[in-house]
Amino acid sequence: MKGDGREGASTERPAQTEALGAALASRLQPGDVVLVSGELGAGKTTFVRGAARALGVTEPVTSPTFTIGQRYEGRVPVSHLDLYRLEGVEDEDPALLEDYLRADSIAFVEWPQAAAPALDRIAARVEIRHAGGDRRDVEISYG
């Protein structure tokens, strides 16, 4: 991950949110973790799908809410976590997230609040907000 800073953009369609994910992906390295926040239906999974596609993942990138974690094979392994159903990780068995947060993988974490204190190597934080209809405001802060 190179460069610090903050970027903001508005998108009109899901495809544009995917494109922002793809642009972010080009700056990531194995071991990087990206936190993706936003309300229900904001487009977090859409953003991650765009990033995963840019990293060479061809299979469907769907919401991992139910299973908590998914792993995809791209040019690098991609982990997709969703901690929506996870209340907190104070008593966490560290190995649980370690299966997904590996030095050889790029990881995207939706609903990261529950685990944020325990996550390191955070390369970027993405915040997506509803802006009416299909419009979304996307803010990315690096480092």
Binding site: R85, E87, E92, D93, L96
Partner: peptide, 12 residues
């Protein structure tokens, strides 16, 4: 009480 499965607790 958690509004969903808590995986660590579920694993345990």
């Amino acid at each position: 009480q958690y509004g969903g499965v808590v995986p660590e607790v579920a694993s345990r």
